[in-house]
Design a protein around this nucleic acid. Structure first.
Lengths: 331, 331
DNA sequence: ACCTCATGAGAGAGCGCTCTCTCCACATCC
DNA sequence: GGATGTGGAGAGAGCGCTCTCTCATGAGGT
């Protein structure tokens, strides 16, 4: 009742195991009629190679760990980008015949488990989706002898190739858009400052305001809707006369819109709002949200290419992709 | 430069490979001082068992495939439930030391690949998250000799244990809520009828209206925001006097709210809206959405238990979990 | 004193595969 | 014609582990 082995295939085709193996692995040094015989045997028996046996000898596993690192206090996966990244990474990796092993790293316990697992050579490479800066994972993983790439620039200086979008430039474009539409008191709801995206988008905001001699008005959120609402209320208290707000991600922008509504401010008449990410929901807010789009699918595709490049021993320069202003009704 | 093997550990500890293996696998028939010696050797060498070698002999892989089956035309993973399910399934499985192998099944090509992979014994079991009824996957997988469980009742009658929520009962509760608040012309935006959740929620809606002698007014969407908007516009054309709508999921409800707004209807004054799922965004719509909550985390936990039960050769009765009405402002 | 029996440790087979090495048959060259 | 080369196939070693079987030791019983 066991699954057929290569031995069985070879016996049925009347060849040696080695020859059967050659056929399975697509080597060319097999005479056509022998190849046919083996392939027939494979079909008839329904043979599927045993990957454990194979990777025992090849020292490859053909699987890639997709490590999603959340800070203990913040569940990153509520973010809709989470599914997009996971999904498109899966698609890309499956296209090159790699398995995707999904690993969540939230607690210290899971970190230990993860490191053991990866050190154990269970995967050929690691794609790290780590978002908070205090994360010890990039450092830990870079010490292991496993190719690692990161979605998003690692917060700590560590020699891991990464793909990121131009957060600074995107934020600058967003704020310039607000300025050029005549807004003068432009606040921001920043992301968490222990995250690179949080830092960089705040930097972009500050750059533009500094250059144009405007005052910056900052509240800090943590990329959740909830915190967006709270930060917006805070801003309205701090500066009731503000006429625009750049929100560091769309999720918080949704919360901010709600807070503005509750405070009786009209968007965009009283206050203009620009978000960041262009999540699906941005089209459905009231009013629809103007936001900075970055190409998540292209980013993950680039990330996969980066990892495959690492396997091939190629170069590993970071990839920074541009963002695009999507103008809807909120600003 | 190779990773240390059990052989190396045994040599260093001055015991045989078999004894070292006993220690690694926590067998009790090892004298304490020998156990200590082996453990010390393991630490010093940084030994991690090679899983390929292990599963080659044990015929287990300790990994579980999480198969997400999307219909080619519809990207299920846009649904926020997607991430919640994936995430909590990961957490649950990691807690019992199983790896999660994520597999997307969208195209026919990926189906073939998937079947090969699973037939190849790469995983000990399969958790199927399949949402559309025409899916050949449940049938195909149930033929393989691999334990399979399903999130959501499979559309085709097939002997796979599953976990689902009480879609019919939930829909009934939603519609009764609308009735009891005095609504009389209650429409519904149904989910796609090739999905069980779509069918069942429509059934629940019809049950209540039939029993209370009200006319049913139905438009069909496909569980996306976009389709919710379109369906709502359709309903307003069909019956401009409707005063309530039960929407089969929150994503469509968000779209419906937008369409109502654009049509100048006030919610809930003119039209009451009840959704289904209680996604995160439901709290942030304008107005906040009344909806049916079902416990996604508990469902996935139950699903994992179901699969583990299958491994243990235990019973495999479907699990149906109740839903709960969350009253906000939209109805 | 002998036999029995638990206990703990080692020997060794084998899981299914890849891959190097070897070998054979036949064509090619001087 | 014998040496050389070449394409195609087989033999067999091992990848790192588990697990059964065997064996040595010593405690306990008669």
């Amino acid at each position: 009742m066991r699954r057929p082995t290569l031995e069985a295939v070879a016996a049925r085709a009347g060849v040696s195991r080695a020859t059967a193996s050659r056929v399975v692995n697509g080597q060319t040094t097999v005479a056509p009629q022998i190849r046919d015989a083996v392939e027939r045997a494979i079909d008839e028996l329904g043979y599927v190679p045993n990957s454990a046996a194979r990777s025992l000898v090849t020292q490859r596993t053909d699987s890639i760990a997709l490590v999603v690192s959340e800070s203990p206090t913040r569940v990153f996966s509520e973010d809709p980008l989470f599914s997009t990244v996971i999904r498109s990474a899966s698609v890309e990796l499956e296209a090159v015949n790699k398995q995707v092993v999904l690993m969540l790293a939230s607690s210290a316990k899971s970190h230990a488990r993860l490191e053991r697992y990866i050190a154990g050579g269970h995967v050929d490479g690691v794609m790290l989706i780590s978002m908070h800066g205090a994360d010890p994972l990039p450092t830990a993983l870079s010490r292991l002898r496993v190719p690692v790439v990161s979605y998003g620039r690692p917060a700590v200086p560590v020699d891991i190739p990464f793909v990121d979008n131009d957060n600074v430039g995107g934020a600058e474009a967003a704020v310039r858009h607000l300025l050029s539409s005549g807004r003068r008191r432009i606040a921001t709801i920043a992301g968490p400052l222990d995250m690179i995206a949080g830092q960089d988008r705040l930097t972009g905001y500050r750059n533009v305001l500094r250059d144009s001699d405007h005052r910056s008005i900052v509240a800090v959120g943590d990329f959740t809707r909830e915190s967006g609402s709270a930060a917006m209320r805070q801003l309205l208290r701090d500066d009731p006369a503000l006429d625009a707000v750049f929100v560091a991600n769309d999720l918080m922008a949704v919360g901010a819109l709600q807070a503005l509504r509750q405070a009786g401010r009209r968007v965009p008449d009283d206050v203009a709002v620009v978000g960041f990410d262009d999540i699906d929901a941005a089209k459905y807010t009231e009013p629809p949200l103007t936001t900075m789009r970055h190409p998540v699918m292209e980013q993950t595709a680039a990330l996969v290419r980066l990892l495959l490049g690492l396997f091939a021993g190629g170069p590993s320069d970071p990839v920074i992709l541009p963002t695009e202003l999507i103008v809807r009704e909120s600003a």
